[in-house]
Structure formats: C-alpha cells, structure tokens
Amino acid sequence: MIPDKSRSSSVSFRIFKDRFFYVCVCLMASLTAIPLIWIIWEVLKKGYRQINLSFFTEVAPTTLEAIKAKNAGDLIPGGIANGITGTLIMVVIASLIAIPIGILGGVYLSEHRNNRFSSLIRSLTDLLQGTPSIVVGIIVYFWVVKPLSSYSAVAGSVALAIMMLPLIIRSTEETLKMLPGTLKEAGLALGASYTSVVLRVLIPSAFGGLFTGILLAVSRVTGETAPLMLTALGASAVNWDITRPTSSVSLLIWQFYNDPNLVDMIWSSSLFLLVLILILNIIAKSVANKWRIQ
C-alpha cells in the first residue's frame, strides 16, 4: 500500500546529507577558534617587544616622550605601572566588598529556596547580572563620584563590585545547593549554632566551588573598561589614594588607543591583560576540577 522506497530520497543520499551536515558542523565549530587564535597572535606579535622590566615599574609615557623615542627609532619608554596598580587596587577593594556580601547573600538564597522574597532576589540578581556595564558606570557616577565630587578608585571599585556581586551570589547558591542536606543536619545535631554551622561547615565544604566562582567573577571584571571610564577616569601617575582618579590597565589601553603616538603600547598592555585573565581562569578551572573529585 505504501510505496516506500520510490518516494523517499535514497538511503545513500540521506547518508550523504548526514555526512555533509556532520562535516559542516565540525567545520563551523572549528572556525570559531580562528578569531581566538587570530586575536592571540595579533596581541603576541605586536605586544611582546614592549614587555620588559620598565613595562611593569614605570608609568605610562607622555605623548612628548613617545614622539621623541619614536623619532630616535627607539621603543616607546615607560610602562603601565599606573594601570597595574590601579587595576590591583580596584579589583581588591571590589572583591573585599563583593565577596562577603555575595557569599552571605548566596547562603541566604540557598537556605530559603522557595519563599517569595528569595525568588524576587534571585530574579533581581539575574537582572543585575544582565545590566550593561555602562549603566552600572552611570549609577556609580551618581552614587559615588558626585558625592565625593571627584572620580576615584573607590568609585571604580564600587562599580566592579556591583558587577561581581550577582556572579558570586549565584555561584555560591549553586554550589551550596549541591551539598547534601545531611551536612547541615549533622552540624545542628551536634548542638552547633546556626552561625557556626554555616561558617564552619557549609562554607568550608563548599570552598572549592565558592573559590572558583570568585575567581571567575574577578576575571570577568579585570578587563572591564566602560564603567571605569565613568568612575575611575584614569591617572597618569601611580596613585594609592583611593579617593582620587586612578588608572587601570584597560583604561590605559583606551588612552593609548586614542593617542596615535602611544598606539604601540596597546598590544603589550592587552597581552598583559590577556595573560592575567588566562591565569585567573586556569586557576579557577583547576580548583574546580580538584574540588569535583573529592
């Protein structure tokens, strides 16, 4: 009754289509590696020459110094010490703000899974995580820069902290959810207070996962530029006063990019940033792997 074979495309054609599709998938998937390789190649090729000791110890050169060096056929002098210290200061302060709050908030969400308040907070955490970084920059401008009437490292830190917070909250929550419920009960059964069960049992048991989440959050904000333009602004000298404008590696790249005489510096700075982020990611991954085995 059913004329099967006559109307179906032949089996060999279907197999051909199947193979063709497979090859396409593999090809397209491997093509995505091209931009990665290209970017790394570009940054390495153009950036490695500038990396030397003074790159880490000296501040960014002025336009005049750069022009002089260029005319003499030398490498542009100076380094990105002001950016490195700025990034360091701001990321550290941001972490000091975001890590404790993020972990405690994550504990709250994992302890109250189904009440209305925590599902509201969960949605808002997602909202915050999806907020464009430039918008975070705008509000921190109003919350910190204006009241202090100056761009500052602390403003930059607050912006980065706001970006880290949702990442840490969610990773803490996810990690704690994976712990067996008996762990908490065992602690409470021994007569320990809720506080010490959370601080001495839950958080240490989840340490690997929390640590990974924190490192990934740090690596996410390390290369941020847009919110810092509106909050930390940048500075030409190494600055340890957190209430004054401060530079960061990413801000320096932006500054070099906009100054034709300093353009040679963008690649070395990018290289530095990439390596830094890569290291953070590798550590995060190896911690995650180790923790999973246990």
Binding site: M1, I2, D4, R7, S8, S9, R14
Partner: peptide
Amino acid sequence: LNGIRLSKKEKDEL
C-alpha cells in the same frame, strides 16, 4: 524522520 513524503490520505490510513 526518513524523509518519506506521504499524501494526506496515506497518512490518515497509516
């Protein structure tokens, strides 16, 4: 799944 086209009547019957 096998890409065989059937008429509406054949489908209904099947």
